[in-house]
Design a protein around this nucleic acid. Structure first.
Lengths: 224, 224
DNA sequence: CAAATATAATAGTATTACTATTAAAAAACA
DNA sequence: TGTTTTTTAATAGTAATACTATTATATTTG
């Protein structure tokens, strides 16, 4: 899996200059992931990032229009990466049910291994998705940004997995609702397990989030 | 239902001066709901609110410590109100299954009627819950605020409905996950239906969100 | 009618999320 | 090699935000 980064292609409308094209760009992306994870998106600023990478606020603005756009970039990277892993993992699987189970697992499981070959720490990026990604689309500019294709990668993943749902049960009325509920739900449960645990039944090491959502999907689709 | 407001008691740690205790306080709450709904939470400021209610920024700060605290107040009001309606609606119902169905419906259904007797427009407040409530707890101060009891009303509702789940199926392992997934999921689906419809299977007038979540709960619990 | 309290008006602060300009350094190219 | 172009760094500046503090003026209460 060490050539994953080759497959991640991000919509060029998301940046002003491709951060993959220079060392500074890579440092921006890589350090921003660490910092957003550490201090949270609201406290993260380009000024602080500039200090950390011994560069300058204004230099960062040459890559990203705003910190909001940087977050959108990171989120797209994550979903592209997930889409690639999904395709890879189900490519030789025949059974629709097995494919769906693998997909659910991928969507719902915590990310625990990092690919050292890219400048992106996927473990931390997954945590950013859990903690911060709702901030990318809960804005007054969602509609305009959706039209520009800023959420395409995410929507494509939902579409792909919804198609797997329909392969299992062609009569099911709500495949997109089911999958977006599972994805967002799993992220929320991970967040709640850290901060509002009484909203969950999380128990360390028991894989409850994965078990809950897998069970929920197959029960809802009447296949078990 | 016109004496609902009597039953809504908000934790006094959420405000500096009780907004129910004065006309200005009521105008603050009532107008803030309209404004947050109209322009969104980020663009909403106490300065703008002051202008709208022909009062002053600094006067508003005498009621609420920050706009964040005002949002927390509104969210608590919403969940108190829901808790009251829940108790009221299931009080004479015997069957656990019927009680749970009523509860799910209440959690998942859009709010369509306003109680003119309070200074709170519940229709708009529900829309704020859908659009903005995740911003109340996706902060670096969640843990501190959770300890102060800022999320108590919400957690109490989840607990109550989880108990109804266990009444229906005492062996079910994940009642809290199920209910918080349904609540948050339904809010997200309403948001997505407006802004990212390809993530849903929403169709106007077909009540798909209610049908989907009701079905999901009863299938997951093996009772239909 | 006096005292206490609530409100309004004004001013001020640190920080944010940028933009603009210019100079220096590095890379490309001829 | 020298020159041009591009990239980066440094500095300064702006409008807005999310507040705090102070004081004057209403309004309510005893």
């Amino acid at each position: 899996m060490n050539t994953i980064s080759v497959h991640i292609n991000i919509n060029s409308g998301l940046y002003k200059k491709d951060p993959k094209s220079s060392d500074l760009g890579k440092r921006i992306v890589s350090k921003s992931i660490e910092m957003i994870h550490d201090i949270g998106f609201e406290d993260f600023t380009f000024k602080k990032l500039g200090v950390e990478i011994t560069s300058n606020e204004s230099s960062i603005y040459r890559y990203f229009e705003s910190k909001h756009m940087l977050l959108i970039y990171l989120i797209n990277w994550y979903w592209s990466w997930l889409e690639y892993r999904l395709a890879y993992k189900i490519q030789n699987i025949e059974s629709p049910k097995d494919k769906l189970e693998i997909a659910i697992n991928l969507l719902v499981q915590e990310v625990i291994d990092d690919n050292d070959f890219s400048s992106i720490n996927e473990i931390l990026l997954h945590k950013i998705i859990v903690d911060e990604s709702s901030k990318a689309y809960h804005t007054k500019s969602v509609d305009a940004e959706n039209e520009k294709g800023y959420f395409k990668c995410y929507k494509r993943v939902v579409k792909r997995v919804s198609d797997l749902v329909l392969e299992c049960n062609p009569d099911f009325e709500f495949p997109h609702m089911l999958i977006s509920t599972v994805i967002e739900g799993a992220h929320q449960q991970r967040y709640f397990s850290q901060h509002l645990p009484s909203l969950t039944d999380f128990e360390k090491g028991k894989n409850n989030i994965v078990r809950f959502y897998t069970n929920l999907v197959f029960k809802t689709l009447h296949i078990s």
